[in-house]
């Protein structure tokens, strides 16, 4: 086990290094940082001073190490637009996106586990078909369309839910559904597949043969095993959702990191953009690492592969 943990952690660190190089590349691609930092009225010598001060005149690998050193101490640079440290900006907005991502994950799991189980009980039956149909529609509905439909129905016509902002928990309902609905099909398919496999497996047959009642078999034995892959998929999906909420945050005026990223892109504020990419990638790496370790603890076979 210790060897597995060590190996897995090493891979995670390497992945983070690779992602950091890509983020750095993004930043370098966005133009001459010294000119951008100096501002429009600056003279050439001030630009030259900044270039030297920030080591921008040195070879690229040296610059990268320099940048990496700063990043590791939590200094992700300064936003051109806000003129404040990027770390503060991201930290301020991360809770909104995290709240949205986690609640959407919860919504997706609560919706898809029962659906997946129901579908698996009678594969190819009409329930199964309906469930797969719903999953298919979920995958194909453009997010923004769903958002506007909900605003129209629940926001304007029925007046059940507030439309924009983050003032209360109710404000998160529509964004949560919109984001979660997009992630739900993946869970439904996995739960369904896992359940079908588990129900056909030897130990469930044995349990049945021992005379256990059907729903006890389903709930106690099959479901537990079917949920194992859900854990790792949940980690992956949360990573996706943190980065995929841009459209939803823009429509519902949730000023989280997704909105910040979009805004920074259209303001050419790439120190912020690279910081967000890096932050979300970190989340993803840590989450998948945690999920892998958790799975390895549950299922010894994984450690050997």
């Amino acid at each position: 086990m210790a060897g597995f943990v060590l190996r897995r952690c090493l891979v995670a660190v390497l992945v983070l290094l690779a992602v950091s190089m890509l983020s750095f590349g993004l930043l370098k691609l966005s133009g001459d940082l010294a000119t951008a930092m100096a501002g429009e009225q600056a003279g050439a010598d001030y630009v030259a001073f900044l270039r030297k001060e920030y080591g921008l005149d040195r070879p690229l690998p040296v610059q990268y190490l320099h940048w990496l050193g700063r990043t590791l101490t939590g200094d992700l640079g300064t936003s051109f637009y806000y003129a404040t440290p990027v770390t503060d900006l991201v930290a301020e907005r991360l809770p909104i996106t995290m709240t949205l991502g986690l609640s959407a994950l919860l919504f997706a799991v609560t919706l898809s586990v029962p659906l997946g189980v129901l579908a698996a009980l009678h594969p190819d039956g009409w329930i199964d078909r309906v469930v797969l149909g719903i999953a298919l529609l979920g995958q194909a509905t453009p997010t923004f369309w769903l958002c506007f439909l909900m605003i129209l129905l629940f926001g304007i016509n029925l007046r059940w839910l507030p439309i924009s902002g983050t003032a209360s928990a109710a404000h998160y309902v529509m964004p949560t559904v919109a984001l979660g609905y997009y992630a739900a099909p993946a869970f439904t398919r996995i739960v369904r597949a896992g359940m079908i496999e588990a129900l056909a497996s030897d130990y469930v047959r044995t349990a049945r043969a021992k005379g256990l009642r059907p729903h006890a078999v389903v709930l106690q034995h099959a479901l537990r095993n079917a949920l194992v892959p859900v854990v790792s998929v949940a980690a992956v999906q949360l990573g996706f959702m943190l980065g995929g909420s841009v459209v939803i945050e823009t429509i519902f005026a949730l000023h989280g990191v997704g909105y910040l990223a979009w805004q920074s892109i259209s303001q050419n504020d790439y120190p912020v953009v690279q910081a967000i990419v890096l932050t979300i990638a970190c989340f993803y790496v840590v989450l998948t690492l945690a999920a892998d370790l958790l799975n390895a603890a549950i299922d010894p076979r994984i450690r050997l592969s």
Partner: peptide, 9 residues
Amino acid sequence: IPDVSTQVA
């Protein structure tokens, strides 16, 4: 509120 439709709503 960046989106016009959201403002209208």
